[in-house]
Deep mutational scan, measured.
Amino acid sequence: KPRVVLAPEEKEALKRAYQQKPYPSPKTIEDLATQLNLKTSTVINWFHNYRSRIRR
């Protein structure tokens, strides 16, 4: 699969959402995906990867 490249404003929106709730509910994930015009799997993976990046 080709890698999804996020626009800077999409990254900022995801980071703001992460600061509010690092483990978002499925509803929140769905809303974010719709709002940013991304797949839910992309949003889920971003949160998973961002949490692991923060832990390093």
Rank of each mutant, 00 (worst) to 15 (best):
T34C: 09
E30N: 00
K1M: 00
R16V: 09
N49K: 10
W46K: 00
T40K: 12
N49G: 04
S25T: 07
T28H: 08
R3C: 04
P26N: 11
T42Q: 13
Q19H: 10
P26H: 05
D31G: 11
E12V: 04
S25K: 09
R3S: 06
Y23H: 06
L32W: 08
K39I: 09
K15Y: 05
I29N: 00
I44H: 01
I44N: 15
A17M: 05
N45P: 00
T42G: 04
P24M: 15
N49Q: 05
L38G: 03
Y18Q: 07
T42C: 10
R53V: 09
K27R: 07
T34D: 06
S52H: 12
R55L: 02
R51A: 11
F47K: 01
S41E: 13
R51H: 09
V4Q: 07
K11M: 12
Q20M: 15
Y23N: 08
F47G: 03
S25E: 11
S25H: 03
I29R: 05
T28P: 07
P24E: 05
R16H: 12
P22Y: 03
R3F: 14
Q19A: 15
T28N: 14
Q19Y: 03
V4P: 07
P22N: 03
Q35G: 10
L36M: 15
V4M: 12
S41V: 07
T40S: 09
K27N: 14
L14H: 03
P8Y: 02
S52G: 07
T28C: 10
E30A: 14
R56Y: 01
E10F: 05
E10C: 01
I29P: 00
F47M: 14
L6E: 06
E30S: 13
T42N: 10
I44E: 13
Y23K: 10
Y23P: 12
L32P: 02
F47P: 00
P22F: 02
Q20E: 15
L6R: 03
H48K: 14
S41H: 09
H48S: 12
R16A: 10
T42A: 14
L6F: 03
P24V: 03
W46V: 00
K21C: 14
K39M: 14
E9I: 03
S52Y: 03
P8Q: 09
P26I: 03
T34N: 02
K15S: 03
L6W: 02
S41N: 08
K21E: 15
D31Q: 11
N37Q: 13
K21N: 13
A17Y: 06
N45I: 03
P2H: 14
L6T: 09
S25M: 15
T28Q: 09
Y23L: 14
L32V: 03
K39H: 09
N49P: 00
R53T: 07
V5G: 04
P22M: 12
T40Q: 08
P24A: 03
L32S: 02
H48A: 09
A17K: 04
L6V: 05
Q35R: 13
V4R: 05
K21I: 08
R51L: 14
A33P: 03
E12G: 06
R53A: 11
A17P: 08
T28D: 15
Q20R: 08
H48Y: 14
N37W: 10
N45R: 06
R16P: 05
P24W: 05
E30C: 06
N49V: 02
Y18G: 08
W46E: 00
P2D: 15
P8W: 01
I44K: 14
K1C: 04
E30Y: 12
V5N: 10
W46I: 01
K11Q: 12
T28A: 12
V43P: 00
E12A: 05
Q35A: 12
S25I: 01
L32M: 11
P2Y: 15
Q35M: 15
Y23M: 14
K1Y: 12
A33W: 14
Y23V: 11
Y18A: 08
K15E: 14
E30L: 10
R3T: 06
K21F: 05
E30M: 12
V5E: 11
L32N: 04
N37M: 06
V43N: 03
H48W: 02
F47C: 02
Y18T: 01
Y18P: 06
R51M: 14
A17S: 06
S25V: 09
K15M: 13
Y18L: 04
R53Q: 12
P2E: 15
A33R: 13
I44F: 12
E9N: 09
P24Q: 01
R51I: 11
S52L: 12
S52D: 04
A7F: 05
K15H: 13
T34A: 12
R51F: 14
E9G: 07
K1D: 15
L14N: 09
R3Y: 11
R16W: 00
P26A: 11
D31M: 11
K15I: 15
